[in-house]
Design a protein around this nucleic acid. Sequence first.
DNA 1: AAGTGGTCTAGACCACTCC
DNA 2: GAGTGGTCTAGACCACTTC
Lengths: 253, 253
Amino acid sequence: MADEATTPSPGRAELEALDPRLPLHARLREVLVARIESGEWTPARPLPAETVLTAHYGVALGTMRRVLGELVEQGMLERRHGSGTFVRRAKLDSSLFRFFRYGDSRTDAPASRILTFDQAALPAEAAEALSEPVGSPALHLHRLRLRDDEPVLVEDIWLPLPRFACLAQRHQDELGDLLYPEYERECGVVIASAEEILTVGTASAGDALLLRCRRSDPVVFIERTARTHDGTAVEWRRTAGKAADFRYRVEIR
Amino acid sequence: MADEATTPSPGRAELEALDPRLPLHARLREVLVARIESGEWTPARPLPAETVLTAHYGVALGTMRRVLGELVEQGMLERRHGSGTFVRRAKLDSSLFRFFRYGDSRTDAPASRILTFDQAALPAEAAEALSEPVGSPALHLHRLRLRDDEPVLVEDIWLPLPRFACLAQRHQDELGDLLYPEYERECGVVIASAEEILTVGTASAGDALLLRCRRSDPVVFIERTARTHDGTAVEWRRTAGKAADFRYRVEIR
DNA sequence: AAGTGGTCTAGACCACTCC
DNA sequence: GAGTGGTCTAGACCACTTC
């Protein structure tokens, strides 16, 4: 009992141990981010309540709320009034369509058709993005994305193999339109963030055939590296779409 | 004296007058945004101190700080520890270079060469973006932007005329590389935000000549509508650069 | 030294969700 | 009704900028 009185906030020592030149909220932030990245909490297992966390770390409610608010701002957490604070999964599977506009399409949901799904050696670009040796075993997914039955995007997706072994057994018809929920359910891999690089090039023979355009027609390439919460790159994909359909809008400040 | 005691916070009534279903911070935010947009404060005339604002509106420091923090987050304000809170001007004049990569160029500063500067009727696209009638009088600036003496971007800039009359007298050689400071000094127009739309097309005969590429080579167009703090569109420009130089990176979540 | 924003605390009360 | 996050307050103390 006396012991409990002297250690009312077991986590406080952890904060004190960090660089004391940093403000408390910054140290608290570091610690919470580490716990989030560790996978301790999932969309199904929410964080402890504010009051529990504040008691654990021995900080004021305002300080805790500030940090949680920043993590929400940054897209790492999601708070639901009355029900709890949750780690947030990125929902960006069909976000490629942010970059393209297709004339008044009635059906909103973009369909996808998997063309090939096999095991193959990592090509140089994918290997570099995934920090794996060139030629390592990986899964390779080649698929077409359609809008109103019109082929509009061609995708090549690379998944490093030790990690995605559990997907290797699946048949391509068993995979849904959205891959990230699949990764999570089948392999326990939660995609948390991604980086996309856009460039303009010309269609390869294969792309031209699939996109029904001429070879050498301009094409926009989107190379995406997707990462888990701890920053490990676990998926690399290159998507190609006709440059004529490309339209991207940016708001500045 | 008794009067002062009954009205310790003259601005509080203004907050009470707004929709009471909105939380206090939201109402406070509205009022402050309106004052910022009115141009009451400038980069040279900072906002009153927190303590003055809180006393004026009769709110707690925490509430005021929350609102100011949000406006900083959003890029509307800038706080400098020890010196004050300022409205923020957008500094995006050379931000076009965000969209392009040019091989290891030593000189960082992009130069610009004005080709023509004259008065002309607004074309349809510019007119729509600026909410002006097609054919209204405007200033038209045609310029080239260079990197290491290489022409890399071609720009067409339209400025609606009643507002920018004070620029009409100037000779093109008097205009510097950065236009937005010019607008502010000469015409009192402060650019606060902008919207950019990217598309891919082919070079016109004129663009091809200036960019030293073939006609029909793919080109990236950036159409920018720039606005003042109150949201009025005051400048429209279209910039063209070779698609081969285009490279844009997006971080998601 | 005076004035500014930055950090941190302590606690009251409200609104929403779930059982 | 119990538990969650959301709002708002009041005030202490620190760090930076300016003169």
